[in-house]
Design a protein around this nucleic acid. Structure first.
Lengths: 299, 299
DNA sequence: ATAGCGTGATACCTTACAGGTATTAATAGG
DNA sequence: CCTATTAATACCTGTAAGGTATCACGCTAT
């Protein structure tokens, strides 16, 4: 076989049509260049050049091989640059899992700022609940997730991205809908409630039950999706406790009102990732994620 | 920079995910392989592999670089084969010039048999008069021509491809049109004649004037194209002397009849090429051309 | 714990071959 | 016929490739 150096040498000779000038261009002397070309021709079993007293001509095969060599040489020059960019995380793919809820709050700004500041990083989005995010992180199917606590600190690293209050979603025609002051949990006693699914939305379920008493016969529906819950409220099926960001849904016929017992930072959304991830795109994106979290804490 | 051998080595390690097995596959021992990969990584400034106690994993950059290397290696393996095929003339381009007249006779069979027997040889066709063919041969713009004599034997080689008789093209409504016996040149005295252009179709002009007397006032038109001449005959502009192959035009309203004075091998068509051509496709095609000439001589 | 095994890295040697200098061979032009 | 141009050859030297022997590290199993 032949070497890349031989390919480069042949390109030089074929372009200069002169061994001496080609040798200059390659920063070497003429005799070893002649030998390399001879060796190349022997390796191929093909005459590439016609040596004439006044220089050199290309054979037909030489012309074709010249094209191949040019491609080969440029490709060989591109490859390392590409690899370096990927290693630096400036180019690459970030597979991101997110909860349906986060789509109303931090997901948009996060994806937008990645696109703007790291245009080489492609983001692959996949909506999934927290539990599946953790599983997919472990198996390497995603690189980062936007999820609800709790996380096993041995398995993943995380940073707080966003906090918000839990609020009450009330149908527009409900007596409480026009209330100015925060609603107290005691006022919800006896009201039909749309609750979070205990498996798929364990985090919210626990938040709500930690905040107030919920009687089983009070639960009219269970759901794992904020969108569904608000839609059911609009349909008059009951009240629901949802994060403040649900307001962004702009669902007609539903008022989303403060709940006295909820601290403003009750509901948390974190970014989660594997500390031992080998995807350089993750390391590049992480500072940006942390900055977004700090901005949210301040603003 | 890196070498093709390093690329091959990296592909082997990346596929085996094991230095020992990769070394086996490359028919070498493990330590130099390790060194080559280290050197490759140093040259790129990128970590491609994560060495772990139980083998090796690829980094993100490594995965990308693996793709590049595979392309590079396969391309490097293809290139010589391509060059060898071209050198053998089994693949390539043959630029062929032909006179308009030859298009009615030998051109079709020639191109067809090249396509069939040498499917790798592409034929580029260019219609041009003999004089331009000789010029384009000299300058290398065509590889072979189908032309009329004479040729300068110092400049080109040639072989006789085809001979035919000169015939008389007569309008269907002309008194001679129904004649069974060959027409004699004396019968053409006084008839309006469509003659060959003395510059563009010198060969035919000389053949005709060598065969019979042509008075200047007898010439109604001059043309360099057989097709034009026959069309003018059909239009009743006069008679014309054309090679037998003009019959293949199948022009309605024109009868093409034997001329008593013309030997059957009066009009010659030769293949012409440069003896010092460097196009291997020419050497491959030439035997086929010669065979076609012999067949035509017999049949 | 620790002995043993599997795996990649290192140390050191030998040799092949790349590239350098000096020279020759071939050819065209004056 | 001599000279200038250009590629090829002869010969030398140093770099770096590949080989063997060995080390270092981290699991696994007893």
């Amino acid at each position: 076989m032949f070497t890349l150096d031989q390919a480069r040498a042949f390109v030089a000779v074929a372009e200069e049509l002169h061994f001496g000038r080609a040798a200059d261009r390659l920063h070497m002397t003429q005799p070893p260049l002649s030998r390399q070309i001879q060796k190349l021709e022997r390796a191929l079993g093909v005459v590439l050049l016609l040596r004439e007293s006044r220089g050199v001509r290309l054979t037909e095969a030489g012309r074709a091989f010249l094209d191949e060599c040019r491609h080969l040489v440029t490709k060989a020059e591109q490859a390392p640059r590409q690899a370096r960019l990927i290693a630096a995380g400036e180019v690459g793919l970030l597979r991101l899992g997110y909860t349906a809820g986060s789509a109303f709050s931090i997901l948009g700004p996060l994806v937008a700022s990645i696109r703007e500041e790291l245009p080489g990083v492609a983001v692959e989005l996949d909506e999934m609940v927290t539990a599946r995010q953790l599983g997919d992180l472990r198996s390497g199917r995603i690189d980062i997730g936007l999820a609800r606590p709790p996380f096993d600190a041995d398995e993943v690293e995380s940073t707080l991205l966003l906090t918000e209050a839990l609020m009450v979603a009330v149908p527009g025609d409900h007596p409480l809908a026009l209330r100015d002051a925060p609603i107290s949990s005691s006022e919800l006693r006896g009201e039909p409630l749309i609750m979070h699914s205990p498996e798929q939305a364990r985090y919210f379920r626990d938040l709500v039950t930690g905040l107030m008493d919920v009687r089983d016969d009070q639960i009219s529906h269970t759901s794992s999706q904020v969108l569904t819950m608000v839609a059911l409220v609009a349909a008059g099926q009951g009240l629901a406790l949802v994060p403040e960001s649900a307001r962004r849904l702009g669902m007609a016929g539903v008022n989303i009102l403060p709940l006295r017992e909820s601290p403003v930072d009750l509901v948390q959304l974190h970014a989660v990732w594997r500390g031992d991830s080998t995807n350089p795109a993750l390391s590049t994106v992480l500072p940006l994620v942390r900055r977004l979290g700090e901005q949210a804490a301040k603003g």
